[in-house]
Structures are given as C-alpha cells and as structure tokens.
Design a protein around this nucleic acid. Structure first.
Length: 874
RNA sequence: GCGGACGUGGUGGAACCGGUAGACACACAGGACUUAAAAUCCUGAGAGGGUGACCUCGUGAGGGUUCGAGUCCCUCCGUCCGCACCA
C-alpha cells in the first residue's frame, strides 16, 4: 500500500522532459479541426518572472490545455517584448550592453517559464529585439508610410526628462511618464506619428462587436476615443477690431442649441487669432506665454483658475448682426481639441459660468429645467447642463433641447444671415494620432534617411533590416544613436549624396501591436504569412493585465486594421478585431512588513504568529516586532515579493498554479499567503493518495463495463460525471476558482466512497479516477501525468480527450425541493423528479411543519415550481 | 466633477434565468492515530434563543415590486478603478 509522497519538483522535471521530447504542443495548421488561438500578453524580459506572470500564464495554460482536450487545434505561443528603457538603464548603471542584458534575461525567464510546465509551442518563440523580428516591423512601417498612415510633423510633445524621450498621450499618467514617473514637460519637436485617428470611428463603433471583452475595457476605450457630435460654427469678426487677414473665427460646439446664451468667444493661447492679436500687444503676448507655460502638468491644471484676456476683437452673432461679443484668449481652451476656439455660454457650461462671473460677463439662462417655473427660474453660480425647454432664445423658445439643436443646426447650415456666418455638422474625437518617435537606442530603428536635397527618403526594402549598432555608448544621457560616430552617416538612397539616418526609434508599443500576428508564422520571409494568419486569427482568448486596457489593446486594434489596409492581413471574420475575447486578470498581492526603523521587509525575513487581534509579525533574525502593513500589489519597492522559483523548487509548479487558480475569482486580486500555498500542497498529496488508493484497490484498466450498477456505484458515477461537466463549464467561462471548488467536492465524494467494494464499484472507481485526473490535467498537468501513469495508462493525459459526459447521470430521479410557507423555508421534500405539481402540492400540505406554520389557516394559494420549490401562501 | 464596478460568516469566496444563502477552501475548535510532533482521518461551526425535534434574525443602510429578492427597481452610505478644463 501507501506509495510515498508525491515528489513534485522531481516528477515535474521528468514530465516536462517527456512533453518536450514528444513535441506535443507544437501547433500546425489543420483545417480538419476547429482552431483555438490562446494567448497571454507576452512578458517584458526584466530579469525574472514574478507572481503576476505565474497567474497570467497559469490561466492561459488551463484554457489552452482544456481546449486541446476538447478537440481544438490549439496555438499557444510565447515570446518577449524585448525592447525598452530598462535595458538601457542597465547599460548606463552596470555598463552591460542592452542586448546582452536582454538576452540573458530571456534565457533566465525562459527557463523559469519552462519550469511552470506550460503547454507552449516554444518553436514559435520570438523576441521583438531581434533583427529577424524588427526587420519586418520596418517593412510594415514603410508600407504605412506609403499609405499615408505614418507621417512626420512638428508638434508639442510630452517630454520625459528622466528617460530623455517623448511619450505618447496614452503614456502620460497624471502628468507623469508611465515608466519613469517624472513630471512630463511640453516640448516642440518634429516627430513620427501613426494616423490612428483615421480609424477613430471604426475603433469606436467596433467596440460593440467585442461582446467577449470586459465591459469595463470597452468603456475605457470608448472614453479614450471620446467621440462627440457637434457643429463647427463660423463667427464673423468685426472688421474694425480684427487683426489683418482675419475675418472670422471657427468654433466647435456640441451645444448649438445654447447659441443664444452666448456671452463671449474664447480661443487658445496657441490659436492663430491669439498669436495675431498678440503681435502688437505685449500684455496679451505675456498672457499667452503664461498660458503656454501652464498646462505642463495636470496638477497645475487642476489648481488653475479660469483666466482670460480680452483681445479687443469683437465677433458678430451668427443670428444677429447687431450683437457683438468679446473675443478672449483663455487659459482653459485646448488648442488640440475641436478648433481651439469656443463660444462661451455661461448658463449651460460650468467653465463658462466661472469665467463669466470672474469677468462680469452676462449670464442668460436659455434652458429651463423641466421642474422649474419660467417666472422664478434663475441661475446663481452653477450652470444647468441638462435638457429642458428653451427660453430667451428667440425662434427656439419653447422647443426641447434636442429640437433646438436640430433647428439651430439646420439654420446654420442653410441660412446666410449677417456677414457669412455658417456652420457644418462635425464629429470630433478626443483621440490624437499616436506619436511613435522615441529618442532612445534600444528600440526598432525607423527606416528612413534624411537628405538635404531629397528630404525624407524611405530606406529601400532590400536594405532592411536597419540594424542597431552594437558599439553604442551609454555613459551620458541622450540618444546613443544620435551621438554614435558613424551609424547615422549614410548616403541618400535616392541621390547618393551624404545624408543622415533617422535616429528616432519606434515606441515599444509598436512591437507589441502585431506580435500576435507574427506568432502565426514566426519564420515567414514577409512580415505575415497571409494564409497562416487567416487560419489562426483572431486570437480566440487573450489574457492579460487591466493596465493595458487602453494602450496596448487600442494600438493593436489600430494595427490590425492598418495591416489589413496595407494588405498584410485579412481576417476570416467580418470584423478586423485581433482579439475576439479578452480576459483581464487581477493582480497578485501580499501583505507588507516594516521594520521598527520603517524599512520595508521581505516576507521571507518575517515570521507570523498568533491570529485575529493577536496576530503579529517578528523579524526571524532578531525577534524584533515587525509592523504588518496593507496588502498591496507585489512590488520591488515594497519588498512584498515571493519568488516563483522558491515556490516551484519547494512545492512544485502545480502547487503554485493551483493556488493561483483557487479561491479568488480570476478577475479579482488574489492575496498570496503562505498558508494558502501550503493548503494547495496538501491537496496535491490528497489527490495522489486518492489515485494511489484507486490504483491499489481496483487495479487494471477500465475493462468491460458492468451490465448494471448498484446504487453506491451509481452515486460515484453521478458525482464523476457531474464534476466533469461542471469543471468543463467553469474552465470554459474562465471561472477557475469555481472549477477548483468542484474538483474539491468531487475528491471528497470519491475519497469517502473508496471503502466500498464490488465489481461495479471497481469499474466506477476506475472511471472516476480517470475523470479526476483528466479534470485536474489543465491546472496541475504534472501531477495529472503522474496519476495517469499510476492508474496504468501508458499514454499522456495531455493528449487525452476530455471524456464525454453521460447526460443521464447528471439528473437524479429524486429531487429535494424546499417547502416554504409565506416565503419562509419550513421544510424540504424528497420527491420524484417527474412528480406532478398536484402531487407535490399534496405532499407539501401534508407536512407537519407546514401545518404548524399555517397554524390552522387554510392555504390561499400554493405555488409549485417543478424540481425547485413549493410555496404555500396562507 | 463625470463614468464604471463592487459591498455575502473570523477570512477568500459559492449561489444557473428571481426559487433551500453561506457550496468549496483557509483559519479555528474538539476527537482519533502517535512516546511526541508533523502528516493523515473523523466531527463541529452565520448570529441570537431553547434541554429538545425547533424558533427569531441575517447578503452595506432604507424603501419598493413579487407567492418568493444576495439577485430586479429607487434613494443613500462606503470601497476600488478609469477619465478629467474635450466646449
């Protein structure tokens, strides 16, 4: 009896070796089977994997292995998002070459991932920093350039003074660089952009098709794209006051209905009209300068008051040539939204209200709230921005807000009142083009050459890849490519004269915008093997962190479309969405500990004692009391890290995987606890013991199925089939914690059933054992193989199909239904599943508990929900 | 400020479409085994009351719809997340 304890670390190495040798996770196109592309967001090779990776990849692996068992042709690849700042920082700090550093990290992390036993097709591994990858990215860039989807312009950009590079709008968080955390500055630079705004409408409307994405992510993207329906309204300027060459100003508004509530116009400090007006007005010039300086940080914007400067220019109301309004330069007008100019309606917009109150401008209410009386309605300092009935608005009076919008829009479009004021409907987006220039070394070089005579010249395709020089220096800040002695000096591909290479490299988010395409044919001579991509895409299940809800996912959605339009890609589906289903997993958190001096401490240096209110922590080395802090995301800075290697070496990968999948719903944060891991470790041994006992007590293969099963054997079979059914559904829905609970439940049933004997029991137990092993397979694959072998099979459970559930076994002949009296549960009733409602009612009314609860009253009504509940109303 | 999500025992969390709330696990308590510990196995447990089969209360708070509400509707409170002068 009792085989020894399952030695996870040892057996895991063995089974990993077996999988690797048999190459079972290699994917190839197979039209005969339905495909399933399972992808987890690929890691940045920062040095070592962390628990967040373990959780992410464990989830993806469960799904991939399950789908494989369900008969799908699964593609489950892995690679490295390998360009980026940390490699350069390492080069600066430790004098190692960024490439050397990166590849060493990749080697380490590959080893770590392999020790997790993931069902990955390693033959497709890619690293974005290899010329064999970025060569194709350069080709894609050239095609985008040709198509007009990549372009250069001078613009105000977010400059990260720590990383010495430009950041995209999406990469500025609370006014700080997303990576460095430095306060971002505004600089005027000539930069490369991708025309993501060309796809704004499609990127927004197609969100509706992404039904298998979290609602939250879709909303975040929709808000980010920020569509608004409005009008462009052109206001004539009074000739006497307008600067030379300006006869009108165009403003953007989403509320043309409030046009009669206008009391001023305002333009941004960078607006051409402001610049012209400032030319011979030093005071205004100074004000504009001040405005430009502001707005460099969000903190300042928040604190800033609404301020303006009257330019002296007067504008003429589109519907009344005798109505003049002042034109201000104002600090709260954004040059890059709409037209950089607005008309201010204090009654209908809080900002305009603040502004009007400060400068003593008129406040005319134009919308009467539904619950207010026209005679008494007045506005204090709060604007009314909702719908209502139009007042003080001439021909709009009495209309609803919506009708007034239409009426105004129509009139503006068709009429030519006064001096050529007019308007046009316009959809405006908040989304800006994606600035991809980075003044860094460790990125994909932008393949163009700047020539004095020919201008910007694309590098001929035959010259790709433009490789990074291997002898760059990192001893001072700035772009190593820019200061490299020879790299940038080339001859113009067009005229042959001396010219310079573009020294900007691409934002690393470009690399990750198409890697999922490259995985479908990682060796292809062209960026994409169209057939392979057509077969595999879209990704059927994508799993990663919520932190990429906007950046990476939006860029990827853009890139898929841009690649379609440059004929690199075509989808078999009728949308151009790269990720059919998205799942965003929660973070891995851990308690934090602080020494008496206030320094963060590693969990490994701390011993926990007591519980509840008496729970305390002491430093193992000294026995000193340690402060237990909040539970937070595992991070280096707080030192609340647990190294996956340690866990895998001690408990095994299956244990780490199982714990990650237990308890917490995958979309929520999971708290890593030593007790939880130990519990997972105990369960592994429990499974091993159960399987061992089955193998020992009921040896041999499944054999011929008995003619009939006794009630005890039937119970085992029912439990097995029910569990298999439930676990399958739970995995399908990515509800791993529920699957884990179902497995626990089944293991408990099986464990207590094993003391019985008999030929039918033997068969049922063997079947149940096989089921148990199959259902733990996706989550604890090594243990499953070991158990599978122990049960006497000489195949790999990783290759076994998910058994078919016998539907008959999922239903019981007898059902237990609750009996309520007036909605309160009083009893329960075990009755035939097919019992008629009348019979159920009769049986319920006979129950002593029911009679007692009725207390002599006659039942007024009896509600019977078949197989569920009886409610006696009395 | 705007938008969204969430709120269930000591803890993590279950509960299909409105139908027995608390599955499963962790932690805990008691017992068995053991010289002892670990491991394992068995048992217990939402709160309160009763000797007892039982009764009352209970899913953030309050109200509503319903035979019946953790689930649907309204108001409020709290926590978390996203966006934030976007006209």
């Amino acid at each position: 009896m009792a085989t020894e304890r399952y030695n996870a670390p040892d057996r895991e190495r063995y089974w990993q070796h077996v999988w690797e040798k048999s190459q079972i996770f290699r994917a190839s196109e197979d039209k005969a089977r339905p495909k399933c592309y399972v992808l987890e967001m690929f890691p940045y090779p920062s040095g070592r994997i962390h628990m967040g990776h373990v959780r992410n990849y464990a989830m993806g692996d469960v799904f991939a292995r399950y789908k494989r068992a369900k008969g799908f042709n699964v593609l489950h690849p892995m690679g490295w998002d390998a360009f980026g700042m940390p490699a350069e920082n390492a080069a600066m700090e430790r004098k190692v070459d960024p490439g050397t550093w990166t590849y060493a990290n990749i080697d380490t992390m590959r080893g770590q991932l392999k020790s997790m036993g993931l069902s990955l097709d390693w033959s497709r591994e890619i690293a974005t920093c290899t010329p064999t990858y970025y060569k194709h990215q350069q080709k894609l860039f050239l095609d985008l350039l040709k198509k007009g989807l990549a372009y250069r312009k001078s613009s105000k950009v977010n400059w990260d003074p720590v990383d010495h590079t430009v950041l995209a709008n999406e990469q500025v968080i609370d006014g700080r660089g997303w990576r460095s955390g430095a306060l971002v500055e505004q600089r005027q630079l000539t930069q490369w952009f991708f025309k993501i705004t060309d796809y704004a409408e499609e990127l927004l409307s197609d969100l509706d098709t992404l039904v298998n994405w979290p609602e939250k992510v879709r909303l975040m993207q929709a808000n980010w794209i920020g569509r608004s329906d409005g009008m462009l309204v052109r206001w004539a300027l009074d000739k006497k006051t307008a600067p030379k060459g300006f006869s009108e100003v165009e403003v953007y508004t989403t509320r043309p209905d409030t046009l009669f509530g206008a009391s001023f116009l305002a333009v941004a400090a960078d607006h051409p009209l402001a610049k012209a007006a400032a030319e011979n007005n030093p005071e205004l010039e100074a004000f504009c300068e001040e405005c430009r300086r502001m707005g460099t940080s969000v903190a300042e914007i928040e604190a800033a008051e609404k301020r303006g400067f009257d330019t002296g220019i007067r504008a003429i109301h589109p519907f009344d040539k005798d109505w003049e309004l002042p034109v201000y330069v104002a600090n709260f007008i954004l040059m890059d939204y709409g037209t950089g100019a607005i008309f201010g309606c204090p009654a209908g917009d809080q900002r305009d209200m603040d502004f009007a109150r400060r400068y003593g401008l008129p406040v005319v209410p134009v919308i009467l709230p539904p619950d207010k009386d026209a005679a008494t309605f007045e506005l204090k300092d709060t604007a009314y921005t909702d719908d209502g009935t139009m007042i003080n608005s001439r021909f709009l009076d009495g209309l609803t807000t919506k009708a007034a919008f239409e009426e105004t829009a129509q009139r503006l479009e068709t009429q030519k009142l006064g001096r050529k004021p007019q308007g046009a409907r316009k959809v405006n987006f908040r989304l800006r083009d994606w600035g991809i220039s980075r003044q860094r070394y460790w990125g994909c070089p932008i393949p163009v050459v700047h020539c004095k005579t020919c201008g910007v010249v694309p590098v001929p395709e035959k010259d790709l890849p433009i490789k990074l020089p291997e002898d760059a220096t990192f001893d001072k800040p700035g772009n190593p490519l820019e200061r490299h002695p020879t790299w940038k000096h080339v001859n113009c591909p067009k005229c042959g004269e001396p010219a310079t290479r573009e020294t900007d490299t691409m934002d690393t988010f470009v690399d990750s915008s198409w890697y999922y395409v490259r995985f479908t044919a990682p060796e292809a001579a062209t960026p994409v093997d169209v057939d392979a991509a057509h077969y595999w895409l879209p990704v059927d299940q994508y799993i990663g962190g919520i932190e990429h809800a906007i950046l990476h996912l939006l860029y990827s959605r853009f890139f898929a479309r841009a690649m379609c339009d440059t004929r690199h890609l075509s989808f078999a589906t009728n949308t151009r969405e790269p990720f059919a289903a998205l799942f965003t997993q929660g973070m891995v958190t851990h308690e934090t500990y602080k020494s008496p001096e206030g320094f963060w401490m590693l969990p490994g240096d701390v011993r926990l004692e007591g519980e509840g209110a008496h729970r305390r922590a002491v430093e193992i080395a000294t026995g000193r009391q340690v402060t237990i802090g909040a539970t937070e995301k595992m991070s280096k800075s707080r030192k609340n890290l647990v190294d996956p290697d340690d866990i895998i070496a001690h408990y095994g990968a299956d244990c780490a995987r199982w714990f990650m999948l237990s308890d917490s719903p995958p979309e929520r944060d999971v708290i890593w606890t030593e007790a939880g891991v130990a519990g997972a470790g105990r369960f592994i041994q429990r499974i091993w013991r159960i399987v061992d006992e089955i193998a020992e007590t009921f040896p041999g293969p499944l054999g011929a199925r008995p003619e009939s099963f006794g009630p005890e054997a039937l119970e085992i079979r029912k439990a097995a089939h029910r569990a298999l059914d439930q676990v399958g559904r739970a995995i399908e829905a990515l509800r791993f914690n529920v699957a884990v609970a179902n497995i626990h439940e089944f293991a408990n049933v099986l464990h207590s059933a094993l003391s019985q004997s008999g030929p039918d029991i033997a068969w049922a137990a063997r079947e149940a054992g096989a089921f148990l092993v199959t259902m733990i397979g996706p989550m604890m694959p090594h243990l499953a193989e070991e158990c599978w072998a122990r049960l006497g099979y000489n195949t790999l459970v990783a290759n076994e199909p998910w058994p078919a559930v016998e539907p008959d076994l999922l239903v019981d002949d007898q059902v237990t239904i609750a009996v309520q009296v007036n909605g309160k549960r009083r009893d329960e009733l075990v009755i035939s599943r097919s019992a008629k409602s009348e019979d159920v009612e009769a049986a319920a009314l006979k129950l002593g508990s029911v009679l007692r609860a009725l207390d002599g009253r006659q039942p007024k009504k009896v509600i019977v929900v078949p197989q569920r509940i009886v409610n006696v109303v009395g």
